[in-house]
Write a protein that binds this DNA or RNA. Structure first.
Lengths: 223, 223
DNA sequence: CAATGGATGATACTCAGTTTCATGACGGAG
DNA sequence: CTCCGTCATGAAACTGAGTATCATCCATTG
């Protein structure tokens, strides 16, 4: 199962060497100007090994994406309708803190995704995958009505957008305490989309609004 | 400026012939199994002309995207802070009704984007471009505060998600009246994100919530 | 020592996309 | 009518990503 000490070490260092070489070359010469052959040569592996390990040139930048997605799904799958909002918030935190744990590497990646359209697009697709996953689970927790589906769609979008906002702030070093900010952001989303509790405690909430009464009524119906 | 009758006709029919041939071949043999050479040959043009007219294989599916994006931007640019929400709603309608006006062709495209990962990804990227555009304008209408930025991000995501929801329902023919549904969806978004009016009419809104009082307090502060 | 299996590397191939150059049709100017 | 500039088209060569195949090497196992 686990291979010999020697092979294991080499396997890991090969992947690490490729990532290091790729980021170095991308930084020095640019993404488009760096070919896979260049990376493989600089990392001391064959072109074949590059594609065997990473599948594509873009995936050198996001190698752990599938693992994070799986972790998110695991968290979501381990929850029920009752703990739905908590599950989503937790899952978002899983993603955010994964990036934060990467530290400077995440910022180097951001520097690339900010400047290389192809990588920015790849990142957007990753985000959409999270959103799709969230939507799917939130939708399953609902009652299947059109209303519920629409809410699931909006909530998934809001959750991902909030996450991206906090993550981007952290990547730009505009963010003092990402824990605090993600808590606030999730609280904001939860507040917006809090479901109708069947027998929950009630409160009188007074807010100012510029909506006319009909719009307010419709909004309330949609809660 | 306008070319001769002959060239004009041929130019337009070339693009149309390519699109027709592409959709036909994609449907018959699949997207990945159809090469650009196949399409060009079937359309009776050269490979060169294909790339000159469409730029990439994927763009045969979304040739009008740039034009729609420009139309959206035009609508957004023509508005001020006062008419912001209206502008966003209008811009979303521009997009939705463009697709609806395509009729069966939009549904053929949907059939492709639903089954071909590369095309689905391209579509996601297009959606993200709209979202980015909305975010940019909504953000500019705000006061530049962190709060305002976060709201812009969420609102753009919600607007695009709502649009996508209605569009997808229409594409699946689950939607009786897209005009009505987009109006409802935009009303829902507007209601969620209605800005804090400085001197707006006020109302007492009573909602049930499962939040404890501290969470409610924080939610209210974040409005 | 021999056999097996998994990881690696070399090579050739397909195809998307770019670049360059030739051609040919058209319209205007003499 | 002819010459000329322009623009659309086509032809061909090239780069580079990604795939498939096969040979090789090395560590474990019997």
């Amino acid at each position: 199962m686990t291979q010999s000490r020697e092979e294991d070490r080499r396997g890991r260092s090969a992947a690490a060497a490729i990532v290091d070489a790729a980021f170095r070359l991308f930084h020095e010469f640019g993404y488009d100007e760096t070919s896979v052959d260049d990376i493989a040569a600089a990392a001391g592996v064959s072109r074949s090994s590059f594609f065997r390990l990473f599948g594509s040139k873009e995936m050198v930048i996001f190698p752990e994406h599938d693992a994070i997605l799986a972790a998110v799904e695991e968290r979501l799958a381990a929850s029920t309708q009752k703990s739905a909002i908590l599950a989503v918030s937790d899952a978002v935190r899983v993603v955010l803190f994964h990036y934060i744990a990467e530290g400077p590497h995440a910022r180097r990646r951001y520097q690339l995704t900010s400047t290389v359209p192809a990588l920015r697009e790849r990142e957007l697709i990753s985000g959409a995958r999270y959103q799709q996953l969230f939507r799917q689970y939130i939708s399953a927790w609902g009652d299947g009505s059109e209303e519920s589906e629409r809410r699931a769609e909006l909530m998934a979008a809001a959750v991902v957008a909030s996450h991206n906002h906090v993550l981007r702030r952290w990547l730009r070093e505009e963010c003092e305490d990402p824990h605090l900010e993600i808590d606030e952001a999730m609280a904001q989303v939860n507040a917006l989309f809090a479901p109708d509790p069947v027998a929950a405690p009630r409160a009188i909430v007074v807010v100012r609004t510029d909506q006319d009464l009909d719009a307010v009524a419709e909004q309330l119906r949609s809660l």
